[in-house]
Amino acid sequence: MYPIQVKRTLAPGVRLYEISAPLVARKAQPGQFVIVRVNETGERIPLTIADYDRKMGTITMVVQEIGFTTKTLAKMEVGDALLDFIGPLGNPSELRDSGTVVCIGGGVGCAPLYPQVRALSQKGVNVITIVGARSAEHLILTRELGRYSNQLHIATDDGSQGRKGFVTDILKDLIEQGTPIDQVIAIGPMIMMKVVTGVTKQYNLPTMISLNSLMVDGTGMCGSCRVTVGGVTKFACVDGPEFDAHQVDFDEQMKRAAVYRDQEAKALARLDCGCRNGH
């Protein structure tokens, strides 16, 4: 069992958890993820490692409540324990140690971005961070990201904080102002990563994204997480989750994410009516 040590609300429907998992914390690195199963009837879901504390033996995750499992998790409290917790899975990020990197986070994507921003900054890289969200109240971790960024830019859809517009508007400005950029890292909703990639392709800027495909085992056993990269099928869990954005077939990924939409609605209805047998 893996006890919840800390639970904190960061934004509406977004919570941070610190989970006690010493063996995972011992090895965790930026870019990796864990697979979690909340209880005996639960699904296995992947969540990115947002931070880790090797001494305390804890892993931090930031979770957006979008469906049955993430909402079930939200009902758990400090002292409750997750049944299964597997990791660290996937490959660690390959981070540059010089130059300028633009780090773009959308929504909860800011959480997995955070350890990368911190690591880049500690290596002496010039970090320019752009974060985006629907509105001010949905922004997360801006203070933490700001601490390790040479510049922090904010964009909200409604203009309630920072600039009104999308993260790509700021990215385009930076490029057009002639900022020397060696690499772009983008983590967030698939559509955001696709749009960012559209921009960086135009300017030939190397870009890394982190895919959140559907997964089951997370160890290369099922192929649920497959994605076309450079015309070749890869498994996001063992070959990724980070890939060269210019090679990724985003449209295929976005279609694949919709496979269980009907069933997910059914599962969620069960949770919302508060009963256990789906009436």
Partner: peptide, 22 residues
């Protein structure tokens, strides 16, 4: 086949939605 069988056997998708894996 691995995914199809794992979802069904290990994750008990045949008992969905009592079991959460679709």
């Amino acid at each position: 086949a691995n995914e199809f069988l794992t979802r069904t056997n290990l994750m008990k998708a045949y008992l969905f939605p009592e079991y959460a894996t679709p």
